[in-house]
Design a protein around this nucleic acid. Structure first.
Lengths: 190, 190
DNA sequence: TGGCCATAGTCAAGAATATGACTACTCTGA
DNA sequence: TCAGAGTAGTCATATTCTTGACTATGGCCA
């Protein structure tokens, strides 16, 4: 039940609408918590009912009105409480890893293709995250920023995301190469 | 719905009981697909009903009987089909990352403590995975094994798991250090 | 002027996961 | 000899996540 806390954590950066969160979840918080728009809207409603966030209607012209949310004091208190509860071990869930695990029993060609695709996605994501890091730290260099910046949480999680994507990229390419080599080996009658 | 495929992939290594899978899921397949025992038992039943795995009762003395499962031809075909479906993007889900994201708004002390704990867990897991790699490749060296071994799927996913745990370890320690430094900085009135 | 995309959000239903309790037997250590 | 841990598995319930459809409006392009 940490989606609510992920939302609260994301809202520490300011005021956001459900729609903005749904977009932004792809780059920022989504490194460690993926959610669909429907979940976010529903969670925001629940959080508002419980007084952990507060929303205000923003009337817009030329486009639908929206509701901007921010964290309340009670919301910060809830985050505080959450931070002290023992963390559950993290886990990855990845279709592609399942396919690689099974690769000895099936045709490797589609797996190789998917590794390649995934590498491309990871590369693109890594680039986005790299740029986000630069934007977050602004003019300061990294060390300086980490020592004195006033909002380093997103920066730290972003670094983790970047390392993860780079690792994914490397692993996908190296794994695809291994599988490709084996196809050649088998064909040449090893 | 890839738990079923994770189970099928795990059973490619031989015959296992639900109980064994539940234990082993922690080290092997669990790198990319975590599941509770109840889920595994339920999934095995469903897979058996659908003819994708077959079980046989093994009568034991001094302990409860067990059911050993293996993948059927239909099961392999299902894996084959699965391997060709487009892979969904993977995602991490991590309580601890949420806490780090929120660390600017809350007391960092418990977060630092949890980062330390997590680093220890990751280190232990990395060691287990390292040993598993050695066991999987046996006498051969890595290159040799990857070229000619007949069951490399688990090896490849295990390498990914190892890289992930090492990355987690590094990130946790570096992040904890950053947060500790800041506490000092703030205390000294920066 | 018809179709598509973006903004902004909602509803309902279903599948997948998690939580907690429970049976039953055996071996081991205090 | 009693408690606890390990083996092997089941059941029921609750929460969470995913899928798919749906409302509205405005702008852009052909």
């Amino acid at each position: 039940m940490a989606l609510r806390h992920a939302v609260l954590a994301a809202l520490l950066d300011g005021e956001f609408s459900g729609y903005q969160l749904a977009k932004g979840f792809d780059i920022g918080v989504a490194n460690f918590w993926h959610a669909l728009p429907q979940q976010l809207y529903a969670e925001l409603s629940r959080l508002e009912d419980e007084g952990l966030v507060a929303g205000r209607e923003v009337v817009q012209e030329g486009r639908p009105n929206k509701r901007m949310f921010h964290v309340t004091e009670a919301g910060v208190a809830e985050l505080e409480r959450f931070a002290t509860t023992p963390a559950k071990p993290s886990f990855i869930r990845d279709d592609l890893l399942v396919k690689v695990q099974a690769v000895d029993g099936v045709d490797p060609a589609p797996v190789i293709a998917q590794l390649q695709e995934r590498a491309a996605v990871a590369e693109a994501k890594a680039e986005v995250l790299g740029k986000l890091l630069v934007r977050l730290r602004g003019a300061a260099d990294e060390e300086e920023f980490l020592r004195t910046g006033r909002r380093i949480g997103p920066y730290l999680t972003c670094r983790r995301g970047l390392a993860f994507e780079r690792e994914t990229y490397d692993w996908c390419l190296r794994t695809a190469e291994v599988l490709r080599q084996r196809v050649v080996t088998v064909r040449s009658g090893e």
